[in-house]
Design a protein around this nucleic acid. Structure first.
Lengths: 185, 185
DNA sequence: GTCTATATATGGATAGAC
DNA sequence: GTCTATCCATATATAGAC
């Protein structure tokens, strides 16, 4: 039957999970394949059965996130204030869905990730998101509002680092503030 | 006379300048001493006359920034709303004074920098700044406002990346939005 | 799918001459 | 203050056995 003989068919997923955690907490360049392999109880060579390069691992971690982000932007209605607020809400949900470690990997390792070929796609998506969020025919002040709303959502990862408050409460507060700043309350 | 025979007494400063630019644009781990040396037209070994380790270079880059930041926080009056707004204004000036590359080095390489011994001091200072900015006896919502005001100022570096708008205008808009978000308009 | 062994490159750092 | 030469550790990646 399906699912019976897959004792280690999940190795690929486990590599992605450990890679995400280590990349997020130590940085991409500072995390070696040996470290990932050790945590999984395998050797470095085993990783190369599942991924051709180190970069392929981080690509595997980020690809679903990027696809969802692009879908968000694609489906937005940037002409109306309601449509832009809706986009901001969906972005907040998207961030919550992918979790704190992925948020940290992207935001707090922005240079490292953004300089990778795949990472530049994420940078492009972020820029499209900011432009869409700001709306058409935008002033610098409106662009600043959109950007601030965007980083307000992202900053949940910063707050959740060593706070006693629970993540859900932090997300709700961040969304509240982000929404009110988006169009000047 | 002083200043006559200093053809290369400024090498130390030039190392810091090139290091800042490369660390900010490529990341700390991804920038080799060889690359810094090449841009200066010297060899790696020459760097070791001026700095004992690679880490000492990034410490030299960040130390003035950290001292100024701590002085800001020390001199703040966190008991009143006016005092907290004043702190935010001074933080904005401080960021402007140290420039975009240093802002990027800290914010967009947060994991790499923050995991260095010296970098953890900056993380601590940021946390003190956030706490001070939020004021005494703070709710989650007020903490979120303080954090959002903080990242709004930081996000100038993100905006200045490929925009035609001038840096000064971006800074003013960021401060305006940050101030209005700090205490809920 | 995972292992051992190894090729190959590059990094930070030091010794000692000039 | 800068150079050449080198040490040494660690990194990614591959070959081939099991």
């Amino acid at each position: 039957m399906a699912g019976v003989d897959n004792r280690r068919t999940d190795t690929r997923e486990r590599i992605l999970a450990v890679g995400l955690r280590l990349f997020a907490s130590q940085g991409y360049a500072n995390t070696s394949l040996r470290q990932i392999a050790d945590e999984l109880g395998v050797t470095k060579a085993a990783l190369y059965f599942h991924f051709k390069t180190k970069e392929d691992i981080v690509t595997g971690i980020l690809t679903g996130y990027l696809d969802g982000l692009n879908a968000l932007i694609e489906g937005a209605e940037p002409q109306t204030a309601e449509g832009r607020e809706q986009l901001l809400r969906r972005f907040a949900e998207h961030q919550a869905h992918w979790g704190l470690n992925l948020m940290r990997l992207i935001r707090e390792n922005f240079t490292e990730i953004g300089n990778l070929p795949f990472g530049s796609e994420i940078k492009k998506a972020f820029r499209r998101l900011l432009d869409t969020l700001a709306g058409p025919g935008t002033t610098v002040l409106e662009q600043t509002r959109a950007r601030t709303a965007f980083v307000a959502i992202q900053s949940v990862a910063l707050a959740a680092e060593d706070k006693s408050a629970d993540e859900r409460e932090l997300r709700e507060a961040a969304l509240t503030v982000a929404l009110e700043v988006l169009h000047g309350r």
